[in-house]
Amino acid sequence: MDLPSWASDDVDIEHASPARVYDYYLGGSHNFAVDRQMARQAIELWPELPLVMQANRAFLRRSVRYLVSQGITQFLDIGSGIPTEGNVHDVAQVASPRCRVVYVDVDPVAVAHSRAMLSGNPLADIVQADLRDVTAILDDPRVNRLLNPSQPIGVLMVAMLHFVTDDADPANIVAQYRKIMAPGSYLVVSHATHEGRPDQADSHTELYRRAGAPLTMRSRREVEALLDGFELVPPGVVFMPLWRPDSPADVDDHPERFTGYAVVGRRA
């Protein structure tokens, strides 16, 4: 049985979803056969993918802690995916219990699961929307209930923007968010790049393209350009493990293997 009996056209599980594939990479079981099949193919082509995803997840954790240390207590995590170990609200609320988090994802299953998970948490919620639909996200009552736009905010686009093709003008989308971010806000971005493992990039991109989730890898300069208007928090745009590691021991000898860039920008 490829599809569960409840599958319908409206909730598309005929195609792998990046959110659920990501969950599988991280060792989760919140995924369907089609997701696992895709993930296994990807791992076959590129055995280190789970490590890359772990590095990405670890960067998310470190960046949220950093933001809390800078006084940020409200977060908008766009492209949050399936909740798993080390979610933003887990990390943030451990650091500061009054942190408020709104997740955004376009995948209805991820949203339904997140909502179930968050049902007991009054300071966290999820909105189903597309990153590109800035107005819908910012006008959503849940966003308005939990987030105060006059105060600094942490906006997270972790492993998100490489799913926005150049046609859709990602820099412009980021700029629209920047406009509503109060001074002192932060933008957290991690982004797939071909610059770490050029040998792997093409086949990986092709796989995602066939799966209906086209992936646009970008260079360091391109990633930096996406953060136009933000001051880059040191160390700037770096391979993921190099962004403020917990300890030198956490940095691999070959951080470029973790072929994604991490960067945090501050709105002055």
């Binding site: 079981s29 339904a112 179930a116 998970m117």
Partner: peptide, 22 residues
């Protein structure tokens, strides 16, 4: 147990998502 729970959770999430879509 964890896998079964997670599968159960994701299937139920799927059901809810479908119901909402409907």
């Amino acid at each position: 147990e964890r896998s079964l729970d997670e599968q159960d959770a994701v299937y139920r999430a799927g059901l809810r998502a479908r119901r909402q879509a409907e």
